[in-house]
Each structure stands twice: as structure tokens, then as C-alpha cells.
Nucleic acid binder design. Structure first.
Lengths: 191, 191
DNA sequence: ATTTACGTTGAATATTATTTCAATGAATAT
DNA sequence: ATATTCATTGAAATAATATTCAACGTAAAT
């Protein structure tokens, strides 16, 4: 038998997982507390015993996600194209092997567009933005040494990151589908 | 002065545009009738004079979108890689020059995930699915004649279409941002 | 065994969103 | 000019959703 403490933690985790899954499949607004409670096999009342509100629950997910992803995502200190290669490979690896992380990846992106969310949530999300901003000088450098194709560096960064985002979303939503290769995405940048 | 008839059509269009913009930026569930009415400078009451419900309004958008996109999207009858090139170019051209179409493109994709939508909506959306399915044999063919890189054809199709989707979404949401080149996306497939 | 703490439920309440409607006035028709 | 139609509004009714709470039961503590 499990202790009450463990029971409680398990339940809390179950709520988080159920909510995460629903949030990325249906969106925040279309996900009702009733849906989450049902997915986690409990009454709505009990859910509120664990989280004080729907927004608070959402906020906890964002927080977990931003911490988890912050760890994973940073440019390795190599030549520009290699840095993109390694990073893309790491991200693919992460979302391919860890469904929770894959869903988080999607949640973080979606959260972005959500206005009506308190400011502290938005601050947590700024990390991902920074990654794209930091890509631009790296791309310029790569273009100068001939590793990365010519073209507007910002447009290249947009292409790379949003392609990655689109594919990650698909993987998160279709865990059983065959996985693209990180190299294929790198081809967007490669000369 | 405009006739009543024209006035009415303009207003109807304004509602559709406002709703489309909000739906893709916030999602269906988070977009309130009040938001749409405000964006279109009218009372909620009047909005219901034009559309009998929020879902009906959404449905009209999906219908317009599925008709518009059906026209644009089909594989030209050439060698496989060229077919992808032309199609990607057409889509990029469409979403780059026509903000309404770009938003539609995003709406159609999002609509997909929305359960709780009546069946007739889902039928309208099947076209886009077919496009990905139809890609697979084309990719296999391209691999045989050495135009397209090796790898799981379904995974390649997933990579290509979702990369395109991710980028299209960004363009729709950031109309002023620099535009990636369709060729860059083709690089995902090219040998 | 009894008590205490607290996890759990379902129903009650509060809040928010959608939809209806009676009343107003402006454009069109007569 | 007058009547008629119909676009428009704001407020009221309805419906959906989130949140609270009193009551119950089970596990832990004494």
C-alpha cells in the first residue's frame, strides 16, 4: 500500500499529465475543468483541492516546462552549423523519447499566443524567444564562413525554428508516427 | 453612400475577418463573442443578427477556407520533387501575398484538433489530410529516381508538411516579418 | 477502539459567456 | 410626407463553466 503522501503526489502528477494532454490537444479555452477531472478519474471538487484554479494549474505546467526546457536548450559552443545540428538533434531526441517533454514543447509555444494570461507566465516564456533571437548572429556567422546558405538571416531563423516547432507539434500529437530525422531540418540552413 | 445590401455584406465580411483573426491568435475556446463584436465595432446582439451562433460563424469560416484552399492545393503533374517545389512555392506565394488566405491556412489546421465540432465540419477538413497521404507515393517515386533523399517516406512527408505548417502559422501571425524562401523547405526533401 | 486528520464526493453557488428580445431609429419604399 | 422595413442596441434570459462547501468515509495517530 502506498502512503498518503505518495498517493497525493501521484494524484497531483496525474492531474498535471491529464491537463497537459488536453491543453495541447484542445487548447486552454476548450479544455474544461470537467474534462480534466474526468481524464484523471476524479471529481471536480477534488481537483480544486490540488489546484486553486484552472489558471493556477496551467501556470504550474508552464513553470515545469520552462524549467525543463531551459536545461535542454542552449547553443553548444562549436561552429554555427554544428551548433544548430546538435541542438536540433537534442530537441528531437528529447521529444522523441519523452512524451511529456514533447507535450511541454507544444504547450510552451501555444502559451505564447495566449493573452489574458498574467504577466508572470509571459516572463517564463521569454526563454524560447531568446533562442530565436540568438540564432540570428549565429546564422550570419555561418553564412560568412560558408556553412549556411545565403538569405535574410532572420527569415532563415524563422524557417528553422518554426519548421522544428511544426514537426514537434505533430510528434507530440501523434506519438506512434514515424519520426523525421533532425538532419532533414538542418537542411533548411545548410549550404 | 452605400446601399443597405452592400452595408450588410461589408459587415458580414468584417465579422468574418475579425473572428478569423481572433480564432487563429487565441483559439476557438478563448475567443469570446464579446471579443469578436468588439473587434468588429458592433454590439453582440447585432452579431447574432448575422450569424445564429458562435459555432455557425466558425463553420462558415471553415467552409470558405476549405473551398479556397481546395482550389490552390493540388500536385502539379511533373516529376515528384518539382511537384513539391511548385506546390510549396504556390502555398508560400498565397500566404505571403494574401493575409486572409494565410490565416485560413492556420485555421484549417487548428480546426483539425477541435473535437466537439459537428461532423460536417470534419468532413470539410479531410482535403488537407489527403494531401499528406498523397505525398507518400510521390516521395517514394522521387526516391527511386534519386531526386528525394532516403528515409521513411511517411516521416519525410510529416517533416515537409509540418515544417510548412509551422512556418505558415508564423507568417500568418507575424505579417510584417521577413519571409522564408520556399526553396529552403524543399531542402528537407531534396537529395 | 477511539479520535483525529484529511481525501473525497456531489450538490450548491458564483461567475462568465451565449443567446434572445423588445425598443429605437434610420434608410427605403410608397 | 408617411409608412414600412430592417439594422442596431442594450439589457434581460438562458446556458455553460468554474469554484465553494458541507457532509461522509477512510486511513493514520493515539
Amino acid at each position: 500500500m502506498v502512503s498518503r503522501q505518495e498517493q497525493k503526489e501521484q494524484r497531483r502528477l496525474l492531474i498535471l499529465q491529464s491537463a497537459l494532454d488536453l491543453f495541447i490537444r484542445k487548447g486552454y479555452g476548450e479544455t474544461k475543468i470537467a474534462d480534466i477531472a474526468k481524464a484523471a478519474n476524479m471529481s471536480m471538487g477534488l481537483l480544486f483541492h490540488y489546484f486553486e484554479s484552472k489558471e493556477a494549474l496551467y501556470k504550474v505546467l508552464i513553470q515545469i516546462g520552462s524549467e525543463k526546457l531551459k536545461m535542454e536548450m542552449s547553443f553548444p559552443d562549436t561552429s554555427p552549423l554544428t551548433a544548430f545540428e546538435i541542438l536540433a538533434q537534442d530537441i528531437f531526441q528529447l521529444i522523441s523519447t519523452n512524451p511529456f517533454a514533447a507535450k511541454m514543447f507544444v504547450l510552451m509555444e501555444n502559451a505564447h499566443h495566449l493573452e489574458a494570461m498574467s504577466t508572470d507566465i509571459k516572463e517564463m516564456l521569454s526563454e524560447a524567444d531568446k533562442l530565436m533571437e540568438k540564432s540570428i548572429p549565429l546564422i550570419e556567422e555561418g553564412q560568412q564562413i560558408g556553412e549556411i546558405r545565403q538569405g535574410n538571416p532572420e527569415a532563415l531563423a524563422i524557417a528553422f525554428w518554426n519548421a522544428l516547432q511544426g514537426i514537434a507539434q505533430y510528434i507530440a500529437l501523434h506519438p506512434e508516427a514515424p519520426r523525421p530525422d533532425a538532419q532533414w531540418i538542418i537542411a533548411i540552413l545548410k549550404k
